[in-house]
Amino acid sequence: MENLGLGFLLMGVGMLTVFCILLIVIYGSRLMIGLINKIAPEAPAPAPRQAAFNAAPVLEAAVAQLTGGKGRIVKITEL
């Protein structure tokens, strides 16, 4: 019976400790993320590289052929 009391004590202390540690980890991490966002936001990503060749004339020719000269390209966006 004495051991059973120890068991319930361990359950209480153990679950409370695990919850507290993970709560500290969660809110500590949120705080850390907030601080890092302010102090050291990541450097802007490098500009996309220039295409190796100019694709516009090829695309214009393809569109003109497919639409019988009626269609034209307004905008080309890199995905």
Binding site: G28, M32, I33, I36, N37, P41, E42
Partner: peptide
Amino acid sequence: KLEIKNMRAVKIIFPIAV
């Protein structure tokens, strides 16, 4: 609401903090 802007820094500090 919380966006991670610098994941690399967060990932390096996280193991030290934990």
